[in-house]
Design a protein around this nucleic acid. Structure first.
Lengths: 335, 335
DNA sequence: ATGAAAGCGCTAACAG
DNA sequence: CTGTTAGCGCTTTCAT
């Protein structure tokens, strides 16, 4: 075909109007120049369908209108939902999302954040995998960062949305304890990559306090990751009477495994999830889980970033309290 | 504190090595210069932790290593899964994702695609909402584009992944017909925004051929969108004996509604979905749905784009055939 | 109120 | 094999 129809530039508007690029640049942002000029420039800009080139702006050092979202693993259904909530929230502020998925690898996490920063995102939203990562200080010094449900070593933050994991773990463990469970398997996607997460620590401490026999088992995310593992754990001689999954996605896989083994839930084994995905009330049986309001989480995280970008507010912080939703999948310990 | 530690540039390497920026630029890409120079430049680059600035590259006109993914609505669970699959597939090619969500609005779709193009994505993956949109020709002429399960009016494509919707609809309608259903409600998220999609047309035509009484009802995506609607449809005097949902997300909301109304599925009403989300086999009751291999879809779409980016292969095309997964949610028509 | 010129970091002619 | 120069589109001194 013909030559590529390039997007209109400020220079074209300058030629059309007989002004200089400088004048146009100012006019487009409604600065300095006369009202008449502004109107004229706007008219031409609209006619040409002009919009500022975000890349040129970025190179010059301005805002890009894009926020980086870095999640631990998109294989996790809850994090998919988080991505949606965040993207929806950002849109209300006219911002866009550059999405990156660390795919469960803490080492990858920092590298990806660097990529995002190199793309000149105006800010970074990070749902960290665990405290393993390297040196976040340099990166967060230049790019405003808000963490969601996790810590970044040495990072300078614009804000953080903290999940009270200790409370959440406590709710679940006490719930299971009250139902008579004593031997519990805890399935964690993070334990292999990042053994010392607060969540796993909380499990150990509180299990000890309640005199529970808790074994923490490393586990891949996702249905297909946890199902075979569940089959193995459940086939054991001294099978646990309850399985506490540190993510609903994992719990779904376990549910699947139970079905294959012909085990009744909660008759033979109780199952509890940990993030209350919207579908958890619809699965069979409805899954007992811990809810951390995803809307509040997304709104707070984005709000912190936007505040920081607007004026300069200091580091903001909110703690999201867990709510245990007791449904059908957890019941009295068998035998 | 202190001054912002900017990222290293090609110029710094030039100073370190005593070469010109040009020489360094070539050396970094292993072109033209001597092996010795390449080695020396590489060494300094590594030491400084240099990596090319994607923004500068983009402005200059080169590749960014980023692909835009434009989905109809991230509120839809299947599209969330698609986003994950695509992102995973792109990663194997060293590519990144810029994600945009049209949120069900066909008008927004083209605008977002423009934003993505302005960000200089190397290519575009679009799962279109419907044929409503404006003029895609100009955009797709400059940015290689692959469509997934939908058409773009006037677009020049690098490839397309076509879902055989007609076959899918046929499978479902014949399945329901064989079970004795004659009055069927079809819930579609697209019907309001984009009334003439092939899918809806296929429903009308095939319903007529089978002498089915099919009413197409517009419906928001997502659980919360379809649940109230389901309540209304199911409360009618002449309630349909089956509900065919043009996305599993919608079906989940309907399932939820049935539960609230105390209706048994499939005893009182049968329900069928349309994209076979991984959780559909786990919900209660397991959902009959139509599967379009998401892995094949993502792999083909990304493959087409990568091929186009590499050499220049002509427009590629694949048709994904549907597979009906009959599960528990569909049964003989009541009464 | 407007314009000229420099520069963000990189690549691609076009010399030498 | 290597260096000079120009330019991608925009914003920002600094003049006028």
């Amino acid at each position: 075909m013909g030559t590529a129809p390039k997007r209109p530039t400020i220079k074209q508007i300058a030629e059309e109007t007989g002004l200089s690029v400088t004048a146009v640049s100012y006019a487009l942002r409604g600065e300095r120049v006369s009202a008449a000029t502004i109107a004229r420039v706007q008219a031409v800009a609209d006619e040409l369908g002009y919009s500022a080139d975000p890349v040129a702006r970025a190179l010059r050092g301005g805002r890009t209108g894009t926020i980086g979202l870095l999640v631990g693993s998109l294989a996790d259904f809850w994090q998919q939902t988080l991505a949606h909530a965040v993207q929806r929230e950002l849109r209300t502020h006219g911002l866009h999302v550059l999405l990156a998925d660390a795919d469960g690898d803490p080492a990858e996490e920092l590298a990806l954040a660097g990529r995002l920063a190199a793309q000149r995102v105006d800010g970074l939203l990070v749902a960290p995998i665990g405290p393993a990562g390297g040196d976040w200080a340099k990166l967060t010094e230049r790019t405003p960062t808000v963490t969601i449900a996790g810590r970044l070593p040495g990072a300078e933050l614009a804000g953080e949305v903290v999940f009270d994991q200790t409370a959440g773990v406590g709710e679940v463990l006490r719930h299971l304890h009250a139902l008579g469970h004593r031997r519990i398997a805890v399935l964690s996607w993070a334990i292999a990559a990042s053994p010392d997460r607060p969540t796993e620590r909380a499990v150990r401490e509180q299990a000890a306090a309640l005199a529970l026999d808790c074994e923490i088992v490393p586990c891949a995310y996702s249905l297909d990751g946890s199902r075979p593992l569940a089959l193995e754990v459940l086939a054991r001689e001294d099978r646990p009477t309850a399985i506490f999954c540190l993510s609903d996605s994992i719990a779904y896989g376990v549910l699947h495994g139970c079905r294959e083994l012909g085990l009744s839930v909660p008759g033979d084994v109780s199952i509890v999830g940990f993030d209350d995905h919207p579908l958890s009330r619809l699965v069979d049986p409805p899954l007992t889980s811990v809810n951390w309001s995803i809307d509040r989480t997304a709104r707070a995280a984005v709000g912190f970033l936007v505040d920081h970008l607007a004026g300069t507010r200091g580091e903001q912080r909110v703690v999201i309290a867990p709510t245990l939703s007791v449904r059908v999948s957890s019941g009295p310990a068998a035998g």
